[in-house]
Amino acid sequence: MEYVEILRTRRVLFWFAVSLLATLVLNVLSFGHIHSDGDMPSHGSHVPFSAFLVAATVISYIMVACVAPGLSNESNTIAISWTRPIARAAIAWRYIAVDFATIAVCFCVALGAILLAIWAYGFAGAIKMDADAPYELALGAGTVVMWYALIVAASARFPGRGGMIAGLSWGAVILVGGMWSLPLPWLIHDLITALNYLSPLAYLSASAGDASNHGHHAIALTGPWLAIVPWCIGIAALVAGVRLWSTREA
């Protein structure tokens, strides 16, 4: 029922674009007001382009939480969606394709909005294309796929609970990220460490090399593995999610 998902995501994208535009306009206006006396910050430093990719990725996570519950919510309309002459797994994959296209559009719109804001601030010249950009793009896309897939898999056998699971996933990600640095018994600490491998923010944090952690991160992966592992988890979770969804009983 990709047609339904196209209609649904079109609506989500519209409100996303409106919200983003409003934020952008307010931001630019307030910036102009604050610096109306010409007291602009110094332009000496450069901002790497990969930082904007990371920012757009984080904004895309919002879209992931909005579109990922769609498949689970189809449980309310199986009289329509499961009575089409198409295999259920094919229905699910088409749904997922629409969702990924939506997230990609969201990412591009978010990146465009950020760059537009930078240009409006007058810092366009400070943006520097860095060698990490392709890597950050691959890593960010991997974490998006992983989080989307985990929500799909977790909600596949809980019909109509996709929205709740997507909401809880935000809380879970923040919780496991925060708990990792606490002095906990080793068993719990190891469990939290393992859960961090399912957290997209943990991968971004590891990639950023947060100085406050003195190079220690919940995820003990470096280099290409940091980008490859979320893709692998994501693809495995997607396959499992589609299988669970298409074989569940109504």
Partner: peptide, 19 residues
């Protein structure tokens, strides 16, 4: 799956996309 090209089903409670 192809059976559903010739099969119609009406559920006990209407299952429609409210929006």
């Amino acid at each position: 799956s192809p059976t559903f090209a010739k099969l119609g089903y009406v559920p006990e409670r209407p299952q429609l996309y409210g929006w």
